[in-house]
């Protein structure tokens, strides 16, 4: 074996270790019952953590449901808003375009804590604080930049030629979107959907601030365990957190992806 090949193997193995080791630690922690500080492995294994997490009083299942509900609704609305916004930014030239591009990106740049307080005061005034709707509304600007950026770049690459062709073939506005634009947007919808879902799914601060502890999501449930140092619970919850988002990603990808020969010609 020559040197570059060996080097490649070492890099690959170390990447895998870096990615998988934390998982192993999480799995071991979640099954431990007692772990002396100087031992390599726990001295006692047990199901205390898992039994508690799946019991009624932990509210794990209801929080998971709430998290999925919020993230799905946010992803859905995010998609509906970011496709037309992406089209406008990708295809049209209008005064103030640069400013709007900047504003759209702002939620990813400005710390949420800086605007969270102001939003909370406004939401209290409109009766949106401590409500599900309030939490969904406050998640939306956080996920929009991802969707808008992706769809803007797709529309930019597509140009107007396909829409022109559809016009020539007598398709009206909705038909043009449904039958010509949408198929080109599919791959982008997968990546945008996955990103938006994850950003919403892992949001802690704004959910806590606007939901006021009444809207229980997985991160809200997880935080006190991490904070209080209950690593068994925290590890179990973290695993549930990771697995559920992973499974949902796979479902989204399955649902949206078409047969191969269609997807590989989209960007020609």
């Amino acid at each position: 074996m020559d040197r570059s090949k060996a080097l490649g193997h070492i890099v690959l193995v170390s990447i895998l270790l870096v990615l998988i080791l934390p998982f192993l630690v999480l799995i071991i922690w979640s099954f431990s019952q007692g772990w002396a500080s100087n031992a390599l492995l726990p001295n006692e294994f047990g199901l205390r953590g898992w039994r508690y997490l799946f019991s009624q009083q932990s509210r794990m299942l209801s929080s998971l449901g709430m998290s999925i509900l919020i993230s799905l609704v946010v992803t859905g609305f995010g998609m509906i808003l970011s496709i037309p916004a992406g089209k406008a930014l990708g295809l049209y030239i209008f005064p103030g375009k640069r400013l709007i591009e900047l504003l759209v990106l702002a939620p990813t740049i400005i710390p949420t804590i800086a605007v969270g307080m102001g939003i909370q005061i406004a939401f209290i005034r409109y009766g949106l604080a401590d409500t599900l709707l309030g939490v969904i509304l406050v998640h939306l600007p956080l996920v929009l930049p991802y969707g808008i950026r992706i769809f803007a770049s797709i529309y930019k690459a597509l140009g107007t030629k396909w829409e022109d062709q559809a016009k020539i073939l007598k398709a009206n506005g909705w038909q043009r979107f449904w039958f010509t634009s949408l198929p080109f947007l599919y791959p982008g919808m997968i990546s945008a959907g996955v990103l938006m879902f994850n950003v919403s799914f892992s949001q802690y601060f704004l959910t806590y601030l606007i939901g006021g502890g009444k809207i229980m999501t997985l991160p809200i449930l997880l935080f006190p365990f991490v904070n209080s140092g209950d690593r068994v619970m925290a590890s179990g919850l973290s695993l549930i957190f990771i697995l559920s988002s992973l499974i949902l990603m796979l479902i989204i990808e399955r649902v949206i992806t078409d047969s191969e020969e269609k997807t590989n010609v989209y960007y020609l």
């Binding site: 030629k161 062709q165 020539i168 007598k170 398709a171 039958f179 198929p183 269609k262 010609v265 989209y266």
Partner: peptide
């Protein structure tokens, strides 16, 4: 879309899907 006019573009723009 309301005109009785059709056009074939230089790049034939067949819908790939």
């Amino acid at each position: 879309e309301k005109r009785d006019v059709v056009m074939v573009f230089q790049e034939n723009l067949l819908f790939p899907h």
